[in-house]
Design a protein around this nucleic acid. Structure first.
Length: 882
RNA sequence: GCGGAUGUGGCGGAAUUGGUAGACGCGCUAGCCUCAGGAGCUAGUCUAGGCAACUAGGUGGAGGUUCGAGUCCUCUCAUCCGCACCA
């Protein structure tokens, strides 16, 4: 052991040791009942590790170490979400093949991960772009096709007319092509979809199984995304035509207030309109407007046009006009609504704009509801009502239904409609089927073949994987690069062996990430995606950790995938993840100056800025080091290129070591909060590690003479601190409260520094107490700073590395964790007036007596009448006087 | 607009879930050590008054419940996030 703490030497040494000894390699072992699956979201191999990754994997790594030390068989794997657009864009820009680009990036990032010392079982590494992996994407697709869960339908894509190519949403943001700036059009093409909507109800109801383990806000977002709504379909007959229009409503009780039927501009009924040319022009305008205004916050004004058609209200028999309106969406419900302006805000706004009559059919039943705005002299309330009344209430002007309560009316009117055959109750969902077709090269090919004779033919399982070609032309224009590779496209029909063409669409990369954590369990399996028995041992995942940006899509898809795997017998549970932790962003200071153009900013990296603080610690001045001139201090923002506030993990490792870097990201903030990166902060954690190190260095020889015996008061106090710390840290780990766990360790170290006694002269029992404290400290430090913990553990006389040495997470002795003497706060009329020390075992009476006997307390109670005393044993006494 | 969350020193954050507010760290101040230090060590650091013991105030704001409120309730303000014509 070196006298000084040199992180780079220690870290290199132990990384090598771990690798050579296979320290983190685990086996599926039914004999080991205690097992734990710790999973972090797999990264996209962009080529560079960033601080968000460091945070994500530090959180998971700490938990993995903790569970290992507790004796669990811990699966902690890593892989690569290695399909996706950036590789293809690199190919277009620089001509490098996606595979080469991707694999170089993976190699680089893998080195960075190893340099961080994360405890992954690298033998289980998987990468989505390898045929061994995506073969099973294709296999799952075929299973879905077989079960009728995969199907084709016509659906729009973003289309650049200039380059004749399909664009992703990202490539067409703002409605213009990312490369040529041409305005993007929608084009309808046939694409593959997965029927996730078949699982909508389960995705909703199974949330009950994971509530408590998942953040409430994630569940809420998923609930909103699924968007369940119960209501009724009602059919309106079109006058003088053999057509009916179907609407969906949750408020059938307001049907007597309908003043119109409003359909989506692209609703098929529009074809029957006598004014269909006008309506079509309107529809085109509406479509163009909705494409252009995709920016959030821009509320589109409600517009519409009368189609000239009339519909019959099946309840009242009344004739009402049919309008086309831009606020009605073809994708939701039936693409048509009954417009009830008196009781729906959007309909109200629409009616105001086009001066349609407003008929009120629901009255309030409670005075807490808004007062009735009603002009009894006229039927049309468009003048009297200032806004829609959307509450439930009592029906009026609704024929036989008048006088009923909304709740009853909704049920009875739906039954009536069903009985009369013009309606039915239904549940609709906002959730739509999952479009998985991508007109791109760098993804898993969809395994179907098109044959002129046989039509759409699935590739037989035995022919999987359908392998991507090694090379293709990447121009960024025209059709998908895959379609330009004849060896790939031209094939024979598996059915009739005649000439056929392969599907050239590839799969959405969310498919890869929907089941990757099952592949880790059995990554080399050539006969199945994974072994059922092994999966039953390891899954569901005990703890999943990742960014909240995946709260909806990825986590919804993976839940769906799991339910499908259950239905084909691969797993026997409903939910893949028991506990989910969503970590906050890593943010850093920003510094800037106004740029040349008005409103533009030039950002400077925090490393290039010198900050001067006043005596309070507030920033008083910030100057650019290179020219000494002031810069503006901006807010903390997510680390990014554009704000020039990124920090390269490599530089941090080089300057402070992987251990200090990891310790800092876990200590600086609770894991779910944003993390403010401050270079000074990491210096603080390095200081802590150095202090631990040098303490062990000074004491390690003397500690060989430690034996338990009669303990001095100081030793007792230290042992109390040690056991109390173990208790706190253990509890903090269970709740992933790393920041307070680290704080507790720092407190214990402060106690050690305050300990009276020197290595040369301490008694054997004092040494025992110090040794006990240090061993607990080192083991509890291992999840945060494993390299230095290994080094210290060895120097305390343990051979073979922490895990192999049989070390276990320290247990606390409750009798030692408890204090013998406790300090009791004494209040007089709720104000703190003194503190007294009593034995922990003191009774309520003894505590009260001690409090009242205290001199300072007496000076406040003197001459007053004691009305009562409240005693909280072990905590405080409150004396109430008058 | 709807839904959710959060407001505590100069800063990140603690507070055993109704019981000593500000743990731990950063920053800052002073001293020691040093050729030097962006190293290390020691002490201090919520605000105001006081040499001090101490006193008063203090958890965005205003009320309330309670012996006692950062914590519970009502209203209000601010910030952040999610969804957004979902019928």
């Amino acid at each position: 052991m070196n006298e000084k703490y040199f992180p780079e030497q220690i870290e290199e040494r132990w990384q090598k040791f771990w690798e050579e000894s296979g320290a983190f390699e685990v086996e599926t072992d039914a004999a080991r009942e205690k097992r734990f699956y710790c999973l972090e979201m797999l990264p996209y191999p962009s080529g560079f590790l960033h601080m968000g990754h460091v945070r994500n994997y530090s959180i998971g790594d700490a938990l993995s170490w903790f569970r290992r030390l507790q004796g669990y068989n811990v699966l902690h794997p890593m892989g690569w979400d290695s399909f996706g657009q950036p590789a293809e864009q690199a190919a277009i820009k620089r001509g490098v093949m996606p595979r080469d680009w991707t694999e170089q990036n993976i190699a680089h990032m893998r080195r960075q991960f190893k340099r961080m010392g994360f405890s992954f079982d690298w033998r289980r590494e998987v990468a989505a772009h390898t045929p061994e992996y995506y073969k099973w994407d294709q296999w799952f697709f075929l299973k879905m096709l077989e079960k009728g869960l995969a199907y084709k339908k016509v659906s729009p894509v973003n289309w650049c007319p200039n380059e004749s190519t399909v664009l992703s949403n990202e490539q067409s943001s703002g409605g213009v092509c990312w490369r040529c700036g041409a305005s993007v059009e929608k084009r309808d093409i046939e694409q593959w979809f997965l029927r996730i909507t078949d699982y909508a109800e389960q995705l909703l109801s199974d949330m009950g199984e994971i509530e408590g383990g998942w953040p409430e806000r994630v569940l809420t977002m998923q609930r909103n995304w699924i968007g369940k709504s119960s209501g009724t379909f009602i059919e309106f007959q079109i006058k003088d035509a053999d057509e009916r229009v179907r609407v969906f409503t949750t408020r059938i009780d307001t049907v007597y207030g309908a003043n119109a039927v409003v359909v989506a501009p692209d609703h098929p009924l529009v074809e029957k309109s006598p004014l269909k040319e006008d309506v079509r022009r309107f529809a085109e305008r509406a479509r163009a407007a909705s494409m252009a205004a995709r920016e959030p916050g821009a509320e589109v004004e409600k517009e519409g046009i009368n189609t000239g058609l009339l519909a019959v209200n099946p309840f009242s028999g009344e004739l009402i006009p049919v309008w086309a309106g831009n606020y009605v969406l073809m994708e939701y419900g039936t693409g048509a609504v009954m417009s009830v302006p008196a009781h729906d805000e959007r309909d109200f706004e629409f009616a105001q704009r086009y001066s349609l009559p407003v008929r009120r059919v629901i009255e309030r039943i409670s005075h807490e509801q808004p007062p009735a705005e009603r002009d009894p002299t006229v039927e049309d309330q468009s003048v009297a009502m200032k806004e829609a009344f959307t509450d439930y209430g009592i029906l009026v002007a609704s024929g036989d239904w008048s006088g009923k309560l909304s709740g009853d009316a909704i049920r009875e009117m739906a039954e009536f409609a069903e009985a009369k055959g013009f309606g039915e109750r239904a549940v609709t969902y906002r959730l739509r089927d999952w479009g998985i077709s991508r007109q791109r090269f760098w993804g898993a090919p969809i395994p179907v073949v098109y044959c002129d004779e046989c039509g759409v033919v699935p590739v037989p399982e035995s022919d999987l994987p359908v392998v991507l070609p090694e090379r293709a032309e990447f121009t960024g224009t025209g059709q998908s690069p895959l379609a330009g590779v004849p060896e790939f496209v031209n094939t024979t029909c598996p059915k009739c062996e005649g000439p056929a063409r392969r599907e050239t669409d590839t799969m959405d990369t969310f498919i890869d990430s929907s089941w990757y954590f099952f592949r880790y369990i059995d990554p080399k399996n050539a006969a199945a995606p994974f072994d059922k028995g092994a999966a039953a041992y390891w899954t569901p995942v005990d703890q999943y950790i990742g960014g909240v940006e995946h709260a909806v899509m990825h986590l919804m898809y993976t839940r769906f995938w799991t339910k499908f795997m259950r239905d084909i017998g691969l797993v026997d549970f409903d939910e893949p993840v028991k506990r989910l932790m969503t970590q906050g962003m890593v943010v850093a200071e920003t510094f800037y100056r106004e740029g040349e153009d008005a409103g533009s900013k030039v950002y400077y990296n925090p490393a290039d800025v010198d900050v001067v603080r006043d005596e309070k610690g507030r920033i008083s001045r910030a100057t650019l080091i290179s020219d000494g001139q002031p810069v503006t201090v901006g807010p903390f923002e997510k680390m990014s290129k554009s704000a020039n506030n990124g920090v390269d993990p490599n530089e941090m490792i080089a300057a402070y070591g992987a251990d200090a870097t990891r310790l800092f990201v876990l200590f600086a903030a609770p894991v779910e909060n944003d993390l403010r990166w401050l270079e000074a902060g990491i210096e603080g954690t390095q200081r802590f590690l150095r202090r631990v190190y040098s303490f062990v260095y000074r004491w390690r020889e003397a500690l060989k003479g430690a034996t338990a015996g009669e303990f001095s008061p100081e030793a007792k106090a230290l042992r109390h601190e040690t056991h109390r710390t173990i208790e706190r840290v253990t509890g903090d780990f269970e709740g992933l409260r790393y920041n307070t766990a680290v704080a507790a360790l720092m407190e214990l170290l402060n106690e050690l520094y305050d300990f009276k006694g020197q290595p040369g002269s301490a008694s054997a029992s004092d040494l025992f107490a110090v040794r006990e404290a240090l061993e607990a400290m080192v083991l509890m430090l291992a999840p945060f700073a494993p390299h230095v913990a290994e080094e210290l553990w060895e120097s305390l006389g343990h051979e073979g590395g922490i895990l192999r040495s049989g070390a276990r997470w320290p247990e606390f002795d409750p009798s030692l964790a408890r204090k013998e003497e406790v300090e009791i706060a004494v209040q007089v009329n709720g104000k703190l007036r003194g503190r007294v020390s009593v034995p922990a075992s003191a009774t309520e009476e003894e505590t009260r007596a001690a409090a009242l006997a205290d001199e300072r307390v007496r000076s406040w109670t003197e001459g007053k009448q004691i009305v009562k005393t409240v005693v909280v044993p072990g905590r405080l006494v409150n004396v109430v006087v008058r």
